[in-house]
């Protein structure tokens, strides 16, 4: 009986959390446009969330492109279809690996630090003191971070896609010794921009929104204690990654 009650309470909490998160994101988005100083903050946030993530995304993209190429080459070679390796990689990267892996890395790199940043601001009463100066932290702090995260994730995914291909082309051309002309022309003929590349980027917009919601929720509503902030950053990474994977499935099922 107690256990069932506990489960019920947890479920109610989760639903209330989703409601509060939705409220926060909606308000953050609307109030973002209330203050023109937010545009400058947005630029700074894009710089933090986007530019600072480039090295991580670049490294991951190159290595995933390279490893994936070798692995698929071994499989395809046994069917005598080694020349299709670029196509296989391109399809997987544009549709799945690009958006999903970028989103997972982004949760760890950007989502967790946004949660920690907001948590710290809350513990040191910075939100309270902003409100005392008649400045709405949802407009000035939540808003720009939300918009920046939704914008930067697709941009980083575009970057990931291209860099992963370069990594793949390098392995295919220089290490395996495939003809690079065939590699690229197979890609070009086999992949459709509007139905393979763009849907992947659309997914990454949704992932950006999910990661932003989760990280801002835990930062803004989470426990304002040092240990609470640490736990909330972890929660952001765990829940953000899970939701990205779940929504990936839902979106793929819906879009087909």
């Amino acid at each position: 009986m107690k256990k069932i009650e506990a489960i019920g309470a947890k479920a109610l909490n989760a639903i209330a959390g989703v409601g509060k998160g939705a409220w926060l994101v909606l308000n953050g988005f609307i109030l973002f446009f209330n203050n023109k100083r937010n545009w400058q903050t947005l630029i700074h946030q894009i710089s933090f969330a986007g530019i600072m993530s480039l090295p991580l995304i670049a490294m991951s993209a190159v290595f995933i492109g390279m490893v994936f190429t070798i692995q698929s080459y071994w499989v395809l070679e046994s069917f005598g279809a080694a020349s299709e390796v670029g196509l296989v990689l391109g399809l997987s990267v544009f549709r799945e690996l690009g958006p999903v892996i970028t989103a997972l890395l982004y949760t760890g790199r950007v989502g967790s630090s946004i949660t920690a940043e907001l948590g710290l601001m809350k513990t040191s009463e910075q939100f309270a003191s902003m409100e005392l100066m008649s400045v709405d932290p949802i407009s000035r702090i939540v808003g720009p971070r939300l918009v920046a995260m939704v914008i930067t994730l697709p941009l980083l995914t575009m970057f990931f896609n291209w860099v992963a291909l370069l990594g793949s082309a390098f392995v295919a051309g220089k290490l395996i010794g495939l003809d690079s002309g065939t590699f690229w022309s197979n890609l070009k003929n086999g992949i459709l921009f509007y139905s393979d590349v763009l849907p992947g980027l659309f997914k990454s917009v949704i992932f950006g929104l999910i990661i932003a919601s989760v990280s801002l929720y835990h930062g803004y509503f989470g426990d304002a204690t040092p240990s609470g902030v640490a736990k909330n950053s972890t929660r952001t990474v765990v829940q953000g990654s899970m939701l990205v994977l779940i929504f990936d499935y839902i979106l793929v099922a819906l879009m087909r």
Binding site: L120, M121, S124, E125, Q126, A128, S129, E131, L132, M133, S134, D136
Partner: peptide, 22 residues
């Protein structure tokens, strides 16, 4: 919240924790 913000434009508060923007 709007009229609260109006009221707060009238007041200045020095909190016990400084709450400076770090």
């Amino acid at each position: 919240s709007r009229s609260l913000y109006e009221y707060r434009k009238e007041i200045g508060v020095m909190l016990q924790s400084n709450a400076l923007f770090n």
